[in-house]
Design a protein around this nucleic acid. Structure first.
Lengths: 219, 219
DNA sequence: CTTGATTTGTGAACGGTTTCACAAGGGGCC
DNA sequence: GGCCCCTTGTGAAACCGTTCACAAATCAAG
């Protein structure tokens, strides 16, 4: 079953899912790979290939039944259940993520928030108390936290990750602009806004106006 | 000069730059591709190949002179100058980005903030007035804005992008969880936290514990 | 039931990126 | 100055992801 699916394929599945949920809400019954590709920013062949890794969900001559495919993708991505998430770092980025509705909507619930700043510890965020990072390991374990979002400064990030991994967490979403090391078996994703911004700077400085489209996407 | 450099290469250059700046601050004089790779989360061969696209910056037998390479990378990435940036969407994410020091540090200055909510329009953020989105095109043009950060809800994002492109902006960093269309010649980068999160969900649900490391990286 | 119009699923071709491996160059020491 | 060690720069090979192209399947209409 585990054939070795590329990260880009998985990323696109998320994108397709978003499009499909939207279509579903608008009462659309079926989509072709063509249409799904257009809305998802890719090609029809790519859509079909991506899906083909997981099964055969379409109906030839018709396309995909929206509701069915939504269910399939949810299942593939592990979104049928909810996930227990903790946020480490209660700064501006942490606060923004805490309020980010899209996480909740897909079943990611932030159950704990940590910070090392005594000023922040004890604050209440929608009734959830910001805890001291000293309690980190204990609370992660007791709370059965499965995913941790790291939103601390770059120079503190590796320490946080080490402790979090130590506490048994195996999924980490990192917002600190630094490259982290995790042991095998731990999934790590980086969101590095500075890198993206510099990619824009590069595109505008170089190829910017010349020749082909410098239009990039995804990340 | 414009050979067609892959986005992954450019992304890694940003990462190298970060590592190098850090080394520089610590007074390190030279680095080998080996060391740079380790800290940047890649391989020595990759580092050398990436750099080789742009010139030959190393000294055989020695490595790279940190200060020199920093300067080269800054130049390649277009970071020797500063960039005029506007933020559209003054919600939680917008606020977090506005305060994000790393942007400023690399020369990205947020000069304008827009929102469509009358409650927000007129607010002052560090002395900068939040403007109505009705003024969008005019202010972007008059302010010579080169890059726009889109931090509005998904269903408003495409409209914002269309207007912003219309106003001559050619670099867009999108935080809305939706796939946007831009004409050729406009650089677009997406930061989609929900997609990353779902990637974690996938990794944990499937390969999670079995077999090889499910440890992913970069984005 | 047959025909025609669609649209999927997929092996094969292609293209691009990463890894490998090694010759070439540079620094430092004796 | 000569020798040795180290590390780069880079063609070639390996690998991986994307695109192509078409046979197979389904639906609708007559």
């Amino acid at each position: 079953m585990t054939k070795k699916i590329s990260e880009s394929t998985v990323g696109r599945l998320s994108l397709y899912l978003r499009v499909l949920v939207d279509l579903e809400a608008r009462g659309v019954a079926t989509v072709s790979s063509e249409e799904l590709a257009r809305r998802g920013g890719t090609t029809a062949a790519q859509v079909r290939k991506d899906l083909s890794f997981f099964g055969t969900f379409g109906k030839r001559g018709l396309g995909y039944v929206v509701g069915e495919l939504v269910a399939e993708l949810r299942s593939i991505l592990g979104l049928e259940r909810s996930w227990r998430v903790a946020l480490v770092g209660a700064g501006r980025i942490g606060a923004a993520l805490y309020g980010y509705q899209d996480f909740r909507r897909q079943g990611f619930f932030i159950r704990e928030v940590f910070d090392s700043d005594p000023q922040k510890v004890g604050q209440r965020w929608d009734g959830l108390e910001v805890r001291s990072d000293r309690e980190l390991e204990d609370v992660l374990r007791q709370g059965g936290i499965e995913i941790v979002i790291v939103a601390v400064p770059a120079d503190a990030a590796q320490r946080v990750v080490d402790r979090v991994v130590q506490a048994g967490v195996r999924g980490i979403l990192n917002f600190a602009p630094t490259q982290l090391r995790v042991p095998p078996g731990v999934a790590l994703k980086n969101v590095n806004m500075a890198v993206e911004m510099e990619g824009l700077s590069y595109a505008l400085s170089n190829g910017g106006g010349t020749r082909r489209a410098a239009s990039a996407e995804r990340r």
